[in-house]
Design a protein around this nucleic acid. Structure first.
Lengths: 122, 122
DNA sequence: TTGACGTATTCCCATATGGGTATATGATTC
DNA sequence: GAATCATATACCCATATGGGAATACGTCAA
């Protein structure tokens, strides 16, 4: 097997920086923008924008509605929630207690060195 | 160019479900576990575990200390913070206001249809 | 219908993946 | 030093990427 498809889930989709940029632009635009606007705003080739939008669409991170000739994309934040929920679980690993964790790490390191000498294999 | 390396940043690294699993196990174990423990706990072939750990290591999501023969890995939550910060920006797109957004989406859809008929091209 | 605009899709390619299996490297014990 | 445990690396392969360029498709205007 190769890497999981970028369309597997939101995690895979937002792994690409440009896709995150697109999401950012959509959010700024009150959540709705058409492709042409994105193209000029981002300054990328149109096919590239469309392709990234395609991935986001497949994952459900964005919705589209046809509006005349234009296609208006909007952010579907719902799909970002799982990412948020997942990463939120590890909040305690950086916020407070960060010092405690580092402390522990250092203690471990000391212990490691100790056990490496303890056996006194000389 | 191909897809960005999984070692590019935390976003890319956690795109892989197995890597998220490993992070979960590390967190459960008070943030420190050796490879053998992970291997038996996860039930995956050892090289696979080591390889995923390698990616996490490169990105800095985990730290290692040698402890006797064992290598004890620990979670470095710090590196998850950017992911949290990024996704947190879109909180308003799912929490409250979710109803408002859907409302808007539906309104847009109606408008879209309307403008499609408006010109009265018949 | 014909043309023009807006967007998606197709094709080609270099690249790196993640899994499997085998093996190398490190550390410890005898 | 030899044998053994713990972990990392090297290979091989199928797969799908993201970018570039060309082009097809869909919608509206004359």
């Amino acid at each position: 097997m190769a890497r999981a498809p970028t369309t597997a889930d939101a995690f895979a989709a937002i792994a690409e920086p440009r896709r995150r940029e697109i999401i950012g632009k959509l959010a700024a635009g009150e959540g709705e923008r058409d492709v042409t606007w994105l193209v000029t705003e981002l300054g990328w080739p149109q096919p590239q924008v469309s392709k990234h939008l395609g991935v986001l669409r497949k994952v459900g991170l964005v919705d589209v509605v046809q509006r005349g000739k234009r296609r208006v994309y909007s952010l579907n934040g719902e799909k970002l929630k799982p990412v948020y929920e997942w990463v939120k679980n590890y909040e305690r690993f950086w916020d407070h207690q960060l010092s405690r964790i580092q402390e522990r790490a250092e203690r471990m390191e000391r212990e490691a060195n100790k056990s490496a000498e303890e056996p006194g294999s000389s």
